[in-house]
Computed example of a mutant assay.
Amino acid sequence: MLSTDSGATRRRLLRAAAAGGAATLAGCAGVDDGSPTPGSDASTEWPYPAFDPQATAYAPDAAAPRSGVTERWAVETPRPTDRPVVAEERVFLPGAAGLHALDLATGESVWTVGPGDQPWTNAPAVVDGTVYATFRERPGVLALDPEDGTERWRADVGPVSSSPVADGEGRCYVGTRDGGLVALDAGTGEVAWSYDLFGEVVELTFRLPTLVAGTTAGEVYALYDSDGPRELWRRKVGGKVVALARTGGDALVSAFGGKLRRLANGAHAGSDRWANRDGGTAQGGLAVAAGLVFGGNGGGLTACDVRGGETAWSAPGRFAAGPAAAGDTVYAGREGEVIAFAHSGGVGVGGLSVGRKRWSHPVSGTPLEGLAVADGAVVAVTGGGEEGPPRTYVLDPA
């Protein structure tokens, strides 16, 4: 971790170089085009709630089930309060009673950490062998050893409402319930700076050199951190931000009751490149995979073209969990099942398409919050109900 003056200088130089590259690429569609191929790496992790700091929920090289599944394990767990994270041979599950660590191989409970009486937990991030956990009660942020949950440091920044993101150069960022965006030293927890936004910060992404944050007040902010925050642009999107991801330098934003929008970077910063109502109110997050952006809600799972925003295909059902993508497959959850779709949507038009659905697997209750793909498997957590208590599933290829 970098905390010295030389580290700060290096950070400034890296960000300046990235800013120049971003300016050159401003207005381009990004690097998310092309036909995906099946992933082949069965050792991948899912270290952020949506795989990476850009919140793409897409692991392009990850091997994952394409034609059917078997259960590695399915165990009773607390109802999730956010997406699971998979790293360091653990499944990290946020719950109302704290952060729970399960053994990835067996499902055995390893440890639970939760400060205070009501430590409602956000999804953590696991970076460079440290679990950064955030809670909606004080102290807000804990840095933990993934092996046994031992506390390395804590930062009392008040109740935290977002999952953390890290920049890879010694900074960890979190958003607070009172509208603060806080930058921490990732090695010590010391506050480097804070910046006031309008509304509770619920979504946060990082792509060098900018942070993009979304709030419950329907505001989207882009900030540049060069050893201090500088606001680049701000946009109101008409409703609570429920999902946020990055594609190239642009931001993909879904607002409650509104549209899915691609907000431009560069010369037209914050303006709509496109807006599509079909993709609005994405529950649990988005997945941005090889030219398509996927989002689910009570009306179905929708795939939109990243370049132009047109609806490419959709699948019916009530999708309450954020989708996850790996290779050429998209994974989602609707009542009573985890389901895999071909990225392309199959062959044909609308309901006449063939080959869209690759497999489905029955689960107890409805998958909630979001799925993850790691270690060659799909991870899903259900909310329980008449079919039984909440459970966590790890599904291997059949």
Rank of each mutant, 00 (worst) to 15 (best):
V242R: 03
V237Q: 01
G284S: 11
A213Q: 06
R277L: 07
K240T: 15
A289M: 10
V202M: 02
R234V: 12
A217E: 15
D227L: 02
L204C: 01
A243K: 02
A275F: 12
L286N: 00
S254W: 13
A255G: 01
A282C: 11
G257P: 12
S254D: 03
L223T: 03
A251W: 08
A267R: 09
P229T: 12
G249A: 14
P209Y: 00
T215S: 07
R246Y: 02
D225E: 08
T205C: 05
L204F: 06
L223F: 10
K259Q: 09
G279T: 08
W274A: 07
A289V: 11
L204W: 04
V237H: 09
A255W: 01
R261H: 13
N265H: 15
L211E: 02
G279K: 05
G291H: 03
T205R: 00
Q283M: 12
G280T: 07
G249I: 03
G279E: 04
A275V: 12
F256N: 09
R235W: 07
L252P: 04
T210Q: 09
D278G: 06
L252T: 05
V242T: 14
V212A: 12
A289K: 01
G249D: 10
W233F: 14
L204T: 05
A290Q: 07
A264L: 15
P209C: 03
T247K: 00
H268W: 14
G258C: 02
G291R: 09
T247M: 01
A269N: 11
A213D: 09
D272Y: 13
A255H: 01
L292I: 13
E203R: 15
E203H: 13
V202F: 00
G257D: 06
F256S: 14
A289H: 06
G214H: 10
L232R: 08
R234C: 11
G238R: 12
L223C: 04
P229L: 09
T215G: 04
Q283C: 06
E203A: 15
R207I: 02
G279R: 11
L263Q: 04
E231L: 12
D272V: 13
R230Q: 10
G285E: 05
A217N: 13
L292Q: 14
T247N: 00
R246V: 02
D278S: 09
A255N: 10
W233K: 02
R234K: 15
K236R: 15
L211V: 02
V288Y: 03
L208P: 04
K259P: 03
V212C: 09
T205P: 01
G214S: 12
T247F: 05
R230H: 08
Y224H: 14
A222S: 14
A245C: 10
L252Q: 05
L204P: 03
A269Y: 06
A287P: 09
A251E: 04
V242Y: 00
T215H: 07
F206Q: 03
L223H: 07
R273A: 14
G280Q: 05
V237I: 14
K259R: 14
A275T: 13
G285R: 11
L223Q: 00
G228C: 02
G258H: 04
V253L: 08
T216C: 13
A289R: 05
G280V: 11
D227V: 00
R262L: 01
D272L: 10
H268E: 15
T215N: 08
